[in-house]
Amino acid sequence: MAGDTQQTSGEYIKHHLTNLTYGKHPDGTWGMAANAEEAADMGFWAFHVDSLAWSGGLGILFCLMFFMVARRASSGVPSGFTNFIETIVEFVDNTVRDTFHGKSALIAPLSLTIFCWVFLMNLMDLIPVDFIPTVVMDWGLGIHYHKIVPSTDPNITLAMSFSVFFLIIFYSIKVKGIGGFIGELTLHPFTPPNAVAAIFLVPINLILETVSLLAKPISLGMRLFGNMYAGEFVFILAAAMLGTYQFVGSWPWAVFHILVITLQAFIFMVLTIVYLSMASEDH
C-alpha cells in the first residue's frame, strides 16, 4: 500500500479517490488542499491539478504522435507507426462518414481527438493503482494525493460532454436558424393540427424537449465517468484487499477492462457524431 502503512482499508480507498486540489481556501488565500475536507470547502474555485495535468499531458502526447505522422504524411508506402496512425484516422473517418452526412471540417478532427484522447485517459486505468502515487509520494515529490485516470473525474468527462453540448446548440442554430431551433424545442414532440392547441402545448413540449436536450451531455459525460470510476474502484478494492498480491484480482480485471476502455472511447466518439448529425439535420 502506498504511503502510510497504518491506514485502514477504508482510509486507503478514500485516499485513492481524492484528487490533488489547488484552489481558493475559505479564508480567501489560494493553495493546495491538505485533505479531502479542505478540498470540499473550496467550493467551485478549485482545480484538480492531477486530472488536468494528466489529461493535458495525454492530449499533448496524442497531438505529438499524430503531428509527427502528419508532418511526413505522403502518398507513398506507409511503414510501421505511420501505418498504425493512418489506420486509426481511416477508422474514425469511416465512422464519421457512415453517420454524419453533412459537410463539416470540424467534426472529423473532433471525433479523432475525442477517440484518441479518451482512450489514452482511460488507458491510465491499467497502470497499477499504487505505482504513480507511490512514485510522487515516496520518491521525492511529497505529493499526498494523486489520481492518474482523468476520466474517473466527473469534471473532466462533463467538461468534454458539455463542450459537445455547446457544439450541438451551435450546429442546431447554424443549420436551422434561431427560429428553427426554438421551433424544434417548442413544437415537438406533440404537433397538433390546429394553431390554438399548438400554443397550448408549447410549455409541455418545451419541458420535454429541454429534458431530452440536456440529457444528452449529462448521459454522455456520466456514462464515461461511471464506467471508468467503477473500473478504477475494482482495481483499488483488489489492491486494498489483496495488498502485495493484488495482481491476482487486478490482472483478470485489467484484461477485461481493455475492452471497456476501448469501447467507452468509441461510444463517446460515436454519440458525439450522432448528436451533431442530429443537430445539423432538418426534420
Binding site: G23, A39, F44, L52, S55, I156, L158, A159, F162, S163
Partner: peptide
C-alpha cells in the same frame, strides 16, 4: 467528487 473549476480547465484543453 465535487464539480469545480476543473471543468473550465478541461474545456480549454479540449478546445
Amino acid at each position: 467528487m465535487s464539480i469545480n473549476a476543473t471543468l473550465i480547465g478541461q474545456v480549454i484543453w479540449f478546445a
